[in-house]
Design a binder for these strands. Sequence first.
DNA 1: GCAAATTTGCAACATTATAACACTTGCTGC
DNA 2: GCAGCAAGTGTTATAATGTTGCAAATTTGC
Lengths: 168, 168
Amino acid sequence: MPERALPYRPHNHDACVSQALADARTICREQNARLTAIRERVLELIWQSHKPLGAYDILAQLGSEGHNAAPPTVYRALDFLLQYGLVHRLASLNAFTGCSHAGENHHGLFLICHQCGTVLELESAPVSQAIDDAARAQAFQPEGATLEISGLCPRCRAEANPGAPSHD
Amino acid sequence: MPERALPYRPHNHDACVSQALADARTICREQNARLTAIRERVLELIWQSHKPLGAYDILAQLGSEGHNAAPPTVYRALDFLLQYGLVHRLASLNAFTGCSHAGENHHGLFLICHQCGTVLELESAPVSQAIDDAARAQAFQPEGATLEISGLCPRCRAEANPGAPSHD
DNA sequence: GCAAATTTGCAACATTATAACACTTGCTGC
DNA sequence: GCAGCAAGTGTTATAATGTTGCAAATTTGC
């Protein structure tokens, strides 16, 4: 599997989108789930950038392209996409972002730039392990995680402090 | 400093509350912040249990005791309490919980029982470290964290599976 | 084709949070 | 004490986010 492009660096974003859509189609086919036109369109809108989209942003975009949808339409599509792990909801932003590890059954760790809004999803075994240990130490049985880190992405960091070297 | 009682175990909860209020008064005095009647009352309501409270729950409780407040009153009190680290907001629940490490300038890790609603706040150096490492590996500069783990607390685990031994 | 199940459309509504502006309270310097 | 100012509170209205319930349309399995 090819390394995915980092959202921070310029990349052929159309390729991101078509890859995500192709993955989604595969996953849905395998699980006998129906990736209907609306669901696919919502997924595509979410993938239009690496910035999370609110449900009402999606609604507005659908509206501006003639599909006059009501909130439940969007929320149902989002529920479906969440259920199949194709998108994530970012609780700290009330917004949705495309899942870059679709099909891997994971809890992501999200790095959210409060400057430009870009989100990078990571998997980190050490983080998962540390959390699991901490929970176990309290006899707590973890089932789901919301891990959202807010800060400055490398690009915005560089802008804020142009002299500093980049460890990129 | 005495070990704090665990929310999961029966404890003298009045002591939790009065400790929290005393801490709050100290912190506010030190920082020349005004812990007014409303702010203190909101803090007390939040500490009434180890279950997070929604802003509108607080509003309702204030109402039921004759103080007919409007949403901004509650949200302003909450903003104040958040600012001085006396409460935390749980993004995954849209609710507020008392900070059990007030004054320590920290990001908590929250273990949220989806059965009984109880929340335990932890500090975990290994978790913080792992997250910091993961962020740094992406040249991302972390500033704030939302770490909320949903699962089963020991008490509810025991109820769900009475035969299992407790590693308490 | 047809019955059943799933999906979508739609209207209304619920919940969470904020804006704007007037009024009150408490502090500061004199 | 008290004028003047900043901080805090009250009140109304409204914005933003998310859900319920039911009917119509579409798809699926047979």
